[in-house]
Amino acid sequence: MRSLSYVRAGNVREAIEAFAAAGEGARYIAGGTTLYDLMKLGVERPAHLIDIASLEGADRIDTRGDVLFFGAGALMADVAEDDVIRRDYPVLAESLSKAASQQLRNMATVGGNLLQRTRCPYFRNGAIGAYPCNKREPGSGCAGIGGVDRGQAVLGASDACNAVSPGDWPVALTAMDATIEISGPAGTRSVPISDFYRLPGNTPHLEFAIEAGEIVTGISVPKTAAGRNSTYLKVRDRESYAFALASAAVALRMDGNHVRQAHIALGGVATRPWRAREAEALLNAQTIDREIALAAGRAAFADARAGEHNAFKIELGARTLADAIMIAGGKIQ
């Protein structure tokens, strides 16, 4: 880790100005649970840190209006414990409470969590492994392809990268059609979450639709009755404190016994939070049972491609989604 400057910004404007003034090597830091971690691994090497964890009003959680609004600086633990969110949008609350540990959820912000980077070991092991990684060193190749790929993506991979998008919260937000609020030197803008995460393609190092100097300031989620019939199911290598092997965010707007609209996104299996439109369409106007849930699960993975060790993720992902649909539909607990 190289020597760096640190400044704490008081508000968004101050932060953006500080970033511009800092020049080369400037980075915003909020909770630091990803950035500082990767700095310790030598993967991230900022020269200037602008601390945006305590921007004025940035931790606001507002569930009163037409949309749910989460200030980017709200802590993961606080959103996970919000009474309204827990009651009306369990998919959101669970995606947060099943992530990391309470210590980290007390540090990490819901805005920063959107920018969490992959757990691909070839990406993280820059120091000892020095493995080829197009994300870490564009053009160096991808050791994840043809490697120990048990954890790698089966959806959305390219010839340049098959690293999994690691988040849980972004998966739930993807299912719920969230919008990301962004401020930068050129003003503010809103980006649908479906446009926020890029596929790796030939540029796996470009992961997020956010420019240098821009800050995520908030997240809006349209209110929907689907929230009540929702869940975030996460399957991992241990019962807690682990990243997903497969996860599913499901919210169902019901019309009596029939699905009026399904919101489905997948985690742990794809190179970005993965909206499963095929599965949603398949559930449309159906009543939920094990058979249709599994059919939706299989539909979500119709285009999946496996390597040597991760084929199980296709079946596991389908079954995880099926279980999540059953839970959201109130068929199982």
């Binding site: 493995y131 490697g147 120990v148 954890g151 241990r238 019962e239 807690s240 404190y241 682990a242």
Partner: peptide, 25 residues
């Protein structure tokens, strides 16, 4: 411990990826 025969060494060389039991297990 996971080893990539192309490189040697241990890929999952931390406590997040080398999963020892946690309390919930």
């Amino acid at each position: 411990g996971e080893t990539d025969p192309r490189f040697g060494g241990v890929l999952n060389n931390d406590l997040a990826e080398y999963v020892v039991p946690v309390n919930a297990d």
